[in-house]
């Protein structure tokens, strides 16, 4: 159980974010919720890449006595996470600029009132 704690944190974060998206009415809260889901997924990827007792895969002044490859954490999930972080900030910026514009047009941030497009 205790060794699964990062995974539990990941799923908890995903569901906290999903809760914000489903139950919060403010648009900015929804955006924050999506950002939290994204952080959870990032943590998931990094957690997958951790190897017990490993060091970062950087050879510059490596701690003496490190065996590699077995003594290093996996680099691929870190690369994926970098991509995911940049994607996150791009989506966040676009969503928030849309929110700002929507506020000017509708005069509200309540998701229940922003539904001229229905039926």
């Amino acid at each position: 159980m205790i060794e699964y704690i990062p995974f539990i944190a990941v799923v908890t974060m995903i569901f906290i974010g999903l809760y914000a998206v489903l139950f919060r009415r403010n648009l900015i809260k929804i955006v924050i919720g999506i950002s939290i889901i994204e952080s959870g997924v990032n943590l998931f990827l990094i957690t997958l890449g951790y190897r017990e007792g490993g060091v970062a895969p950087i050879f510059t002044s490596l701690p003496p006595g490190t065996t590699y490859p077995a003594g290093m954490v996996l680099p691929v999930p870190q690369a994926l996470t970098l991509t995911s972080i940049v994607i996150g900030v791009a989506v966040l910026a676009l969503m928030l600029s849309l929110v700002m514009h929507i506020y000017r047009k509708y005069g509200t941030l309540d998701v229940r009132k922003i539904r001229r497009l229905k039926e």
Binding site: E3, F7, V10, V11, L48, R51, P69, L74, V76
Partner: peptide
């Protein structure tokens, strides 16, 4: 998530080991 490998003990690592060994 409990079916994924335990934290810190990845199962298969051939791709990443290749990268570390050859980078």
């Amino acid at each position: 998530i409990f079916l994924i490998h335990p934290f810190g003990k990845p199962g298969q690592v051939n791709m990443d080991d290749h990268i570390i060994a050859n980078t």
